[in-house]
């Protein structure tokens, strides 16, 4: 973990879904994410991983506790400088790849030449240059998720939140998308928080992995990987990779059994 100041800070964050059943979904969570860190969250299904992301993104308010991003409290709306990539296909089917990526910039009232420049860069960066005029329905699932990442990337977020972005993709595609995510992280210098259910993905990509308990989700283990910043998917053959994955699984096994009702 780098020694710079915390970029995002969560203190005592709890989320209880209102209503008659009062589901206690999350927390209390205390977490500091350093500037430029790649932090992943793994946990059993239904443990509140996505709830954590929603609260940190300002998409949902916490029931208790505080969240700060760059020293400013996050409350009720997405702060400037935060970008989110969702689990589901969130591309706009009525827009071409280029218009999808330009969506956010046009809303900011940026001048057309600058929009074009930035969009061209993001489209090229995500390997979509040959498909700029295509519509999402003409692309594969992996390509559509790249469109969504490009649409977020183009806004130059300083904190990127990804909610199981590769969940629907096959394993090979996931490894390659992981490489692209690492490249993106290095080149933009952004802080990344990745929610995933794939232990190998977390072990390969992250500086640090938080393991969450079953609901209500709390951190039960924090694992530092100690990877160099300049890494890629080839580290899966490193002996340390196996050790990290094994540790994540041993922390998670009992919790996952609780989640499928064998606790």
């Amino acid at each position: 973990m780098t020694e710079t100041a915390a970029h995002a800070v969560l203190r005592g964050v709890t989320r209880v879904y209102p209503g008659t059943s009062q589901v206690h979904a999350l927390g209390p969570i205390d977490l500091d994410i350093a500037k430029g860190e790649f932090f992943s969250v793994v946990g059993p299904s239904g443990c509140g991983k996505s709830t954590l992301l929603d609260v940190l993104a300002g998409l949902n308010p916490p029931t208790a506790g505080t969240i700060a991003f760059e020293g400013e409290p996050v409350a009720g709306s997405v702060p400037d400088g935060v970008g989110v990539v969702f689990q589901e296909d969130a591309s706009f089917p009525w827009l071409t790849v280029r218009d999808n990526v330009a969506f956010g910039l046009r809303r900011l009232g940026m001048d057309a030449a600058e929009v074009t420049r930035r969009v061209d860069y993001a489209v090229g960066f995500m390997g979509l240059a040959d498909f700029a005029g295509a519509y999402p329905a003409q692309l594969s699932g992996g390509m559509r998720q790249r469109v969504c990442i490009a649409r977020t990337l183009v806004l130059q977020p300083r904190l990127i939140l990804l909610d199981e972005p590769f969940g629907a993709l096959d394993q090979q595609t996931r490894l390659l998308m992981g490489d692209e995510l690492l490249r993106l992280w290095r080149e933009t210098g952004a802080t990344v928080l990745l929610i995933t259910h794939a232990l190998d993905e977390a072990a390969m990509l992250s500086d640090r992995v938080g393991v969450m308990s079953s609901r209500p989700g709390r951190f039960i283990d924090l694992v530092e990987t100690g990877w160099p910043r300049d890494r890629d998917s080839r580290i899966v053959s490193d002996a340390a990779f196996g050790a990290i994955t094994a540790r994540l699984w041993s922390s998670l096994r009992t919790e996952s059994m609780k989640a499928i009702g064998r606790g």
């Binding site: 993104a57 998409l59 997405v78 989110v84 296909d89 969130a90 706009f92 956010g104 977020t152």
Partner: peptide, 9 residues
């Protein structure tokens, strides 16, 4: 999810 994208923007 599209409504959430709108909120993100």
């Amino acid at each position: 999810v599209l409504r959430r994208v709108a909120r993100m923007h």
